[in-house]
Design a binder for these strands. Structure first.
Length: 803
DNA sequence: CGCACCACAATTTTT
DNA sequence: TTGTGGTGCG
């Protein structure tokens, strides 16, 4: 074989792969074709990182290391070169592949189920069924998968229970109360976060206690005791909290050579998404799994690290190159999401952070519109301004769902909701009460958990008297004490309640309860999950208790219980796994079920945190004021301030075409009125990329008079007297004839039904009409759009026309 | 044992 | 301003 042939062969092969991924830009392509060794992808917002991740996996499976390899098979022929030169095809891929990676040797880790789902489905699209074997999982579900096989080595059973945040919190509250620690000094959230950090630092209760003994803060010693007790109770209940899932997996890999080498050999490539959000444990997990081959590819953006409060350390990304020898770094700076003005605004803000990797987003999409700042006089007006902008867009045919409103705190959503309701704008608030957090759903799940794991005292306590069975708190406390003393699960005590004189008063009811549960448990061994569930809801008396009172509340609870059943059914259908444990695992790790996409066309409202990873044509960033964003706590703390700034960066880069930033001169928050300066982040936007809109919203005058107190804007006071702008003209401007609507006209709307026009205001070549509908109340609509859905009724109001 | 009332506090939250 | 958690009474 001649050198030139070898050379041509390798060239043809590389060219083939390049062509196969020809839709990628040069940096993306480089990332995809860099196959071996540690790789850091600094992926700016909107730079197509998921695309890169997916195609990198596709490349590994399809071509293996061909893109970087000098290997030429002995059997290579001119014909082979010709096939490869002809372009991507199955045959060409087969010829070109060098040591292709089997799908099951790839581990791709994400943070959210949503991201994992997206990864899986896009891989499926690209690779077909072969993609099923790729481990595309969240950190937690990957760990559960490992632990379900190996947990016995750590002294748990294979069917250990997973405690979610709420469970951890209730357990912690119980312990703090038991230990009689002052809740002012020891708020459960704080204690939990200390324990979480301890776990992140690989400190077990003993090591933590040693460190605490030397600490200045006397609270640490108490917390050490709490930590010990917390872990003890988790153990007793055969339960792991979210941190334990990862921590225990790391322990398993560290302490058991055979387990470690099994997984290190199994996975030839480890990919980690959203690397800027990883904590120390997650870093340890990923790097241990990648140990040996060091084929670890991490994707992230240090500028979007906004979860420090949850233990994420930006150091993982900043120190990647020094921790992994020979690491390569590739920057993805080309942005496909936003127009240039928006990106420059984002660049201008983030430039003020000192701890970051150099990066500058750019685009070829053109300048677009400048971000605009609107200064409102108060929070009502701010909210109304947002609503008006959205109405105006809607009138132009822009769907509601193209708009997102982002705020720093959930508490800010209220005013906006009022404004949207008033204006007839459909909206969805993202991230409120989650389905699985509802009491009735947790109750039903607790029943299932206790059936699966009778040692789960926490869940047992939740349901033992829900619905009321006459088992009082006092006797329960006694039972808990007995269980503690004898080191046995509470369930056992309840079963044998008759043996303990102090329990005699409710002994029979306790026994009855365990008999019920035992029967249900035996049912769970014979019947499918959905049948079991029905039995639980009925025989526990839970549904019956709800049916007793026909309140709105109870009706919705019954609905939710039904909703959980459909969750069960679809779980069985989708996974083919009807096991109770399988379902509970999925639920424990899948709190994110109410997703955004499923909704109808509606404006989206959420915190900036929840917006990460999403994009919207138009974004409103509200409450851009000192003290709110950046929040009060960040002022005077440079680290916190940088985190807030990253948050600002995230917010700005969500916008594709139009960014509105709003603030209020005065705002009432938590019952107190304050006036704040405009956010420093706004001032950090280079002036040439920001338009300041100092005129108040076109309706501010009317709004502040009529809107706040009145539920019906058709109130007489409005039309009477001194309002000069009451158009009675027929709207005529703009293209197309607009129908002849006037104030006081009776109308019939397709979806809102009959109503009366109460006001019309000219606006951008159109009219904003206010209609008081009989059934749905007042709505504000843009006439041009509404005219197609609304007809004028002939029977005019008595006087004909006003004025 | 359940409900009503009153203090109190209150970023952000992928699992 | 809103929601939550604890206490006291019927």
């Amino acid at each position: 074989m001649t050198e030139t042939f070898r050379h041509r062969y390798i060239q043809a092969r590389r060219e083939l792969i390049r062509r196969d991924f020809g839709f990628l830009n040069p940096e993306q392509l480089e990332a995809v074709m860099t196959v071996e060794g540690p790789l850091l992808l600094l992926a700016g917002a909107g730079s197509g990182k998921t695309t890169v991740l997916i195609n990198r996996i596709v490349n590994l499976i399809r071509y293996g290391s061909a893109a970087e390899s000098d290997y030429v098979p002995d059997t290579a022929t001119e014909e082979d070169i010709a096939v490869m030169q002809a372009g991507p095809s199955e045959e060409a891929a087969r010829l070109a592949a060098v040591d292709p990676v089997e799908p099951w040797r790839i581990l791709a880790i994400t943070f959210t189920n949503k991201a994992a789902d997206e990864l899986r489905s896009r891989l499926e699209q690209a690779l077909g069924p072969a993609s099923d074997d790729v481990w595309a999982q969240t950190f937690h579900s990957a760990c559960v998968r490992i632990l379900r096989r190996e947990a016995e080595r750590l002294g748990y059973s294979r069917s250990f229970t997973i405690y979610d945040t709420g469970d951890s919190q209730s357990l912690m509250k119980r312990i703090l109360k038991e230990k009689d620690l002052d809740e002012k000094m020891f708020p459960y959230r704080y204690v939990l976060s200390v324990i979480s950090s301890a776990k992140d630092a690989r400190q077990d209760p003993e090591t933590f206690a040693q460190a605490a003994a030397k600490a200045y803060d006397p609270r640490q010693k108490h917390i050490a005791g709490v930590y010990k007790e917390y872990q003890r109770q988790l153990r007793e209940a055969d339960a792991m909290d979210f941190d334990d899932l990862i921590s225990n997996t790391v322990t398993l890999l560290e302490d058991y050579e055979d387990v470690r080498s099994y997984y290190q050999r199994r996975f030839r490539h480890v990919l980690v998404d959203e690397y800027q959000d990883t904590n120390n444990l997650q870093y340890l997990l990923a790097s241990t799994l990648a140990g040996g081959h060091e084929n670890i590819c991490v994707v992230g953006d240090d500028d979007q690290s906004i979860y420090k409060f949850r233990g994420a350390t930006i150091r993982n990304i900043l120190e990647f190159e020094s921790r992994f020898q020979g690491a390569r770094t590739i920057r993805l700076e080309r942005n496909y999401r936003s127009t240039a003005h928006i990106l420059e605004a984002a660049n201008g803000v983030i430039r003020n952070n000192s701890k970051r990797k150099r990066k500058r987003l750019w685009t070829e999409q053109g300048d677009g519109e400048q971000p605009a700042l609107h200064i409102a006089s108060n929070e009502h007006e701010e909210a109304q301004f947002v609503a008006d902008c959205i109405l105006e867009d809607f009138a132009k045919g822009v769907p509601w769902g193209d708009h997102a409103v982002l705020y720093r705190m959930n508490a800010q959503s209220n005013q906006l909701e009022y404004a949207f309701k008033r204006s007839g704008i459909p909206y969805r608030v993202y991230g409120g009460m989650k389905f699985f957090d509802r009491a009735e759903v947790k109750d039903m799940l607790s029943y299932l958990c206790v059936l699966a794991n009778p040692a789960d005292d926490l869940r047992l306590l939740r349901i033992v008297n829900t619905p009321p069975r006459g088992i009082g708190a006092n006797s329960l406390e006694k039972a808990v004490a007995i269980a503690q003393e004898n080191g046995m699960p509470l369930y056992r005590v309840l079963q044998n309640a008759g043996d303990y004189p102090e329990l005699q008063r409710s002994a029979s009811r306790m026994r009855q309860f365990t008999i019920l549960m035992d029967e249900l448990r035996s049912l769970s061994e014979q019947e499918p999950l959905d049948t079991l569930y029905d039995a639980v809801t009925e025989r526990s008396g839970y549904l019956a208790a709800l049916r007793e009172k026909n309140t709105q509340e109870n009706i919705s609870r019954i609905e939710n219980i039904g909703e959980l059943k459909s969750n069960i059914l679809s779980f069985i259908k989708e996974t083919g796994d009807g096991s109770l444990h399988g379902f509970l695992d999925q639920v424990a790790l899948y709190t994110d079920l109410d997703n955004l996409e499923s909704g109808a066309d509606a404006v989206v409202m959420m915190t900036i945190h929840s917006a990460k990873g999403l994009e919207f044509p138009t974004v409103f960033l509200v409450g851009a004021e000192e003290g709110i964003f950046p929040g009060l706590r960040a002022v005077g703390d440079p680290e916190e301030m940088e985190e807030e700034r990253r948050l600002a960066y995230v917010a700005i880069t969500r916008a594709m075409r139009k960014l509105w930033i709003t603030c209020a001169r005065q705002r009432m928050l938590f019952g107190r009125t304050s006036s704040n300066r405009v956010s420093r982040f706004v001032e950090e936007i280079p002036p040439e990329h920001l338009r300041t809109d100092r005129t108040a919203s076109p309706f501010s005058g009317q709004r502040s008079e009529g809107a706040p107190q009145s539920r019906s804007p058709l109130s007489a006071s409005r039309s009477a007297g001194r309002e000069p702008i009451r158009p009675i003209l027929t709207p005529s401007s703009g293209q197309g004839p607009a129908p002849d609507f006037r104030v006081k006209d009776r109308v019939e709307h397709i979806s809102f039904g009959p109503g009366v026009i109460t006001a019309m205001t000219p606006m951008g070549g159109d009219f904003l009409v206010e209609v008081s509908f009989e059934k749905v109340g007042p709505k504000r609509l843009m006439l041009r759009a509404a005219a197609t859905k609304m007809t004028k009724q002939n029977d005019r109001d008595e006087s004909g026309d006003a004025t």
